[in-house]
Amino acid sequence: MSTKSRLDTLPTPALILDTERLDRNLARLSSRMAGFGVTLRPHMKTVKSIDAARHVFPDGPGPITVSTMAEAEYFAGHGFRDMTYAVGLAPHTAERAMRLRKDGVAIKLLLDTVEQAHILGQAGQAAGVTPAAFIEIDCDGHRGGMRIDDPKLIEVAAALKEGGVRLAGVLTHAGESYGLNTPEALEAAAENERAVAVEAATRLRAAGHECPIVSVGSTPTAHFAKSLEGVTEMRAGVYMLFDLVMHGVGVCSTDDLALSVLATVIGKRPEKGWIMIDAGWMALSRDRGTAAQRVDQGYGLVTDIAGKIYPDLLVAQASQEHGTLAIRSGSSASLPDLPVGTKLRILPNHACATGAQHESYHVVSGPDGTVTAEWPRIRGW
């Protein structure tokens, strides 16, 4: 939806998206994957917006990853026909996905048990369609998936075949890469992710199963992989917007962060060294992902309305609708003099979690401050 206003006139809190930074982030990873000859299948759970997706795919719908069936149905309604649902399969998920499949959407599901293979096969038979599924592979002990030495790997593939489900391939996610912070460690994580996925595909093929897709991906490993030999596609999502966790990992600079939350100063407690704003955890999210990193960014870094960072000024505390700004512990920086009514922007720890708190983006391009559009976001499951 088109609109024309300025940031300093918006009611707060409000979610701000800088398309200049978005487009730069998109071009960076797209170019990198093109150099490897690998398909980029962006994870739309980060932006959850058809308007943002049109920046990702300016020439028309392309291959995407989703994390909810609401996302899958939403993007299908906007013409996307090639998608991977990258969350473990449940019976109700299978039923909804098969309705999409019946409508011509090539949706691939994710599973790692024989039981799930049977569920998907039955759902496909009931809908009169042929499902497709990835077997999830555990490359680093982060979450779900099968180890490549698990004998049940071949059993799951056999159960898919018996149930009339096409094996799309293998899929893994190097989630432990989010806890790293050196190029050497990130390169090693990317190589491990690649090698484990390729080995899983090799074992399945040796057992007589076609395994056309080898799917890997996380934003850190996507940017630090030195080789993608044997990989056919890369999934990543937060790279579109970036956030303070990715900055702490070492994937981006603060100048790459395309998302922020606009807030207003609503009070001061100078005796405590506090400034109060109208953005609490309902606007910023509860995510404190940087607390486990070398530099704890509280609930977010504070910038002026044009995006210039105030030295060591953090959202140090957050309650439901209040944020408390304070200078980082140990810093010699001074608390800025910000009158009540001053508009600020908060750079978030986790773009996906912060975005999920809001119904729409207010779109700007660069530091100009003119809001050119409002883009709705999809929510729910």
Rank of each mutant, 00 (worst) to 15 (best):
K45T: 04
P91D: 04
R41S: 07
R21G: 08
M69W: 03
G79T: 01
G60E: 00
K102M: 03
V56W: 03
I50K: 01
L89R: 00
M83R: 06
M33V: 02
F80T: 06
A52V: 15
T46L: 01
A70N: 13
G37E: 07
T93A: 13
V105C: 04
K102G: 05
A70D: 14
A34V: 03
G62L: 00
N25G: 09
A76P: 13
Y74A: 09
A97K: 01
R101V: 10
V47Q: 11
R32E: 04
R81I: 02
M83T: 09
E71P: 11
M44Y: 04
R101F: 05
V38S: 06
R54C: 07
S30H: 14
V66E: 11
I64Y: 08
D103A: 13
A34K: 05
E95Q: 08
R24V: 13
G104D: 01
N25I: 00
K45W: 02
D23N: 12
A106K: 04
G37Y: 08
D51T: 12
D82C: 07
P42T: 00
G104Q: 00
D59G: 05
H92N: 15
F75N: 02
L89P: 11
D103L: 10
A27V: 11
H92V: 15
D51W: 12
A52I: 12
T84Q: 15
A53G: 10
F75A: 03
A76R: 01
R96S: 13
A94L: 08
I64L: 13
F57S: 08
L40K: 07
G88W: 01
L29D: 09
V56A: 05
S30L: 11
T68E: 09
L100D: 06
N25Q: 06
M83V: 12
R21S: 03
G37H: 08
R101A: 13
A72D: 13
A27F: 10
V66F: 13
R24K: 14
L89Y: 06
P61W: 00
M69E: 10
M83G: 13
K48Q: 12
R28H: 14
M98D: 03
P91G: 07
T65E: 09
T65W: 07
E95C: 05
V66C: 14
P42Q: 03
I64V: 15
V38N: 03
A70I: 09
A76I: 05
G62W: 03
S31E: 15
P42R: 01
L22W: 10
M69N: 11
T68C: 07
T46H: 04
V47W: 04
P91I: 03
